[in-house]
Design a protein around this nucleic acid. Sequence first.
DNA 1: TTCAAATAGTTGGAATTTAAACTATTTATT
DNA 2: AATAAATAGTTTAAATTCCAACTATTTGAA
Lengths: 148, 148
Amino acid sequence: MSSQTIAEKARELLRSMGEVRNTLRQYISVRIKEEDVDITFELLEILAYLYKKDGSNQQEIADIMLKDKSSMTYQIDGLVKRDLVKRVEDENDRRNKLIFLTEKGKSLQNMLQGWVAGLYDKSVQGIDEGEIDSALELVQKMNENLKS
Amino acid sequence: MSSQTIAEKARELLRSMGEVRNTLRQYISVRIKEEDVDITFELLEILAYLYKKDGSNQQEIADIMLKDKSSMTYQIDGLVKRDLVKRVEDENDRRNKLIFLTEKGKSLQNMLQGWVAGLYDKSVQGIDEGEIDSALELVQKMNENLKS
DNA sequence: TTCAAATAGTTGGAATTTAAACTATTTATT
DNA sequence: AATAAATAGTTTAAATTCCAACTATTTGAA
């Protein structure tokens, strides 16, 4: 495939990343079904972020998840319904709604983080930290290029 | 960020790729609106594949696009409605429907490929072919790891 | 200070995606 | 040859997403 242009390879790279994400999604979905937890892949991703940064507002979560803010209204509703988080109005800026984990939300942390960490660990087996750093730099540069 | 584990970096890498894809999607959407072409980002991606491999069947296209085959029924319907492709039953295997570009579909090739190539070119400015090759190998290895 | 612009969140509507069940056809096994 | 398993495509229903328009609040500039 040395006949491919650099641009074509960039495209192939994006596609391959999408494949990784699809596979992760499928494995997580199977796990959720096996363990019969009332949650979805999307909700799990939001929880995973809250475990790192509890009390984020919806826009911040939307930015990290690369989703529109109106999706976030929808998804956070799903978490609230399941009593995994609660919405709290920000005293300092009343436009914001801060999202806090409930006790029930926190109680899932070990299990969910275990699933995710296990999968990511598996994905990077035999891969050098330096390789990932380089790839990350490259993709970040692609982002800068596009936005400049 | 040297405190990040390799797995966390892998996650960051996936997110960053998603960001690239979102940006590409937005730029293309703006372009489509500017030029007032009756098409969507998804349809454009399918056409781009057909420009490389006209006469593919729906499942093959779905695999490349990383989408479910039922999305493909939906999207190809959209292309047929716009008279950009036609469905032809495969004589050799009547389960298949082969998708062929119409004259109208072909007439868009230069314009659409120009848009996409321009964006990808921009994204890889100042990036070495070797860097992309390495990143691609890394991601392919991640895929293999996950599926083994 | 006041008014315009920016920001966070919600709502409604349309588009897109997936999963599951289904039909039709082909391939593989016995 | 007969039949079971696999494959391609469609349909339906539910979930998810984005966009655009809207409200409420805060920030910034005249």
